[in-house]
Amino acid sequence: MPIPEPQFDDLYRELLLDHMRHPRNRGALENPTHRLDGVNPVCGDEVHIEVAVGDSEVRDIAFSGLGCSISQSSASMLTENVKGKKLQDIARLRDHFQAMLVDGADPAPDLGDLEAFQGVARFPVRVKCAMLPWKVLDEVIEGAAPAPQGDRQ
């Protein structure tokens, strides 16, 4: 029986690779209200996020960092998906993103194009890469919403 070729289309979706090559909102803000840093000490991935929060809303956001395609594309897509959103909506988005990756839940409708990360759930050691930018943003989110229940990856 021939061995099937491994398929990576699911993990490295086109959208992900596009964000890796052409990160959105990469850089710094002039007047951020928060400067946040996250490092994954096991692999060395870094994500730095600057946010301007006003009226419980993310007015502007930028990121920088270095690391694998998953962590950096996740950071890029995070910025697109939270800009202009209320912190409580972002908290829900974060919970749905985590549920999809960690618990293998079907993507919730509000995830939109973040659904592209669904394939990462099949690679448990890479889940932390996709979650890293969201963990970095937690500090801002937690300012507005109670900490979610249950295990955190």
Binding site: P6, F8, G44, D45, G67, C68, S69, I70, F123, C129
Partner: peptide, 22 residues
């Protein structure tokens, strides 16, 4: 053009165990 962790994930799918990291 390929981060070491992405390399390791792909290579692992071929049954090849190598290390990625610092």
């Amino acid at each position: 053009g390929v981060h070491p962790h992405d390399v390791s994930t792909i290579v692992d799918s071929y049954g090849v165990a190598i290390r990625a990291g610092h």
